[in-house]
Design a protein around this nucleic acid. Structure first.
Length: 271
DNA sequence: CGAGCAACCTGCATGC
DNA sequence: TGCATGCAGGTTGCTC
């Protein structure tokens, strides 16, 4: 479910409600996520204040007095703010309740996400230390991507979805960015020239920035932390449109599998 | 080292 | 209606 724009939207949605708030209680109903939720949090977290929040790739980082909560939404996770008592449903795995009665609720049917805690320097955390640059920074540019691609035989789509190369480009936006840049998803990363990489980087930035501005892509169950849906889906040009006519040239879009993910592209516009 | 893929889980759409 | 199958927004951690 959540790609980077959804994670960013979630972060912006929840932060004002919990900023500078002190934890009263944490309830862990289901600790078995991607990695076990540390049960010691029920002792450690109460009394700590939420000082700041940030994001690294698709990891949400909630910085408390004595450590950081690392939250990932996986494929089906969401975080939302509850201001009045609401009975927990089947997949409501974790509640963080603040002294002002606000509840931050983590829900994740597929349990591919995680809720972890660290006291150590974040840059050295095993899940974060090898991550590539953020896509919306100046560090991520055509020259960088071109350099990283040298001698790489992996298909360009797989390459831009590799978090060690650049974080936050998920399946939807990888498809969309390649279409926008006119690049065939199967091309070998090492055989693409600098000019095309500049175009691709521009496309990735554009598509992500636009999606964030619109509040993320709504697919099935994603909604913002306030419950309002995102409005980006209607802007998708290839994702979910296999066999339908290309919006530019009307050629039927082609659908293939790369890795274990669906790729959609226009065989005429993408070379 | 890179490339490819199995694995972790539930829900939903589809087809018989 | 029921059941089997395949697919879904991610990413780690295996094998080769």
């Amino acid at each position: 479910m959540p790609e980077l724009p959804e994670v960013e939207t979630t972060l912006r949605g929840i932060t004002p409600h919990i900023h500078q708030q002190t934890v009263a209680q944490i309830i862990i109903r289901q600790p078995r996520l991607r990695w076990p939720v540390p049960l010691s949090l029920t002792q450690e977290l109460p009394g700590q204040k939420m000082l700041a929040s940030s994001r690294r790739g698709k990891y949400l980082l909630l910085h408390y007095t004595q450590g950081t909560l690392i939250v990932h939404l996986g494929m089906s996770g969401s975080l939302r703010i509850l201001t009045e008592t609401t009975a927990a449903k089947t997949h409501d795995h974790v509640d963080i309740i603040f002294t002002n009665k606000v509840c931050l609720r983590y829900t994740d049917p597929r349990r591919f996400g995680c809720v972890l805690w660290t006291n150590e320097a974040l840059a050295q955390h095993p899940l974060l230390e090898k991550l590539g640059p953020e896509p919306l920074t100046a560090e991520f540019n055509g020259d960088y991507l071109y350099q990283q691609a040298q001698a790489r035989k992996t298909p360009i789509k797989t390459f831009i979805m590799d978090g060690q190369i650049v974080v936050g480009v998920g399946n939807i936006y990888a498809n969309e960015a390649l279409f926008l840049a006119g690049i065939h998803p199967k091309r070998q990363a090492g055989k693409i020239n600098l000019a095309s990489y500049k175009k691709l980087v521009h496309a990735i930035k554009k598509i992500l920035a636009q999606a964030i501005k619109q509040g993320g892509t709504t697919l099935r169950n994603f909604s913002q932390s306030d419950g309002k849906p995102g409005y980006f889906k209607q802007k998708l040009k290839v994702y979910g449109r296999g066999k339908l006519p290309c919006v530019k040239c009307s050629t039927p879009l082609r659908e293939i599998r790369q890795g274990q993910r669906t790729t959609v592209y226009c065989p005429s516009c993408q070379k």
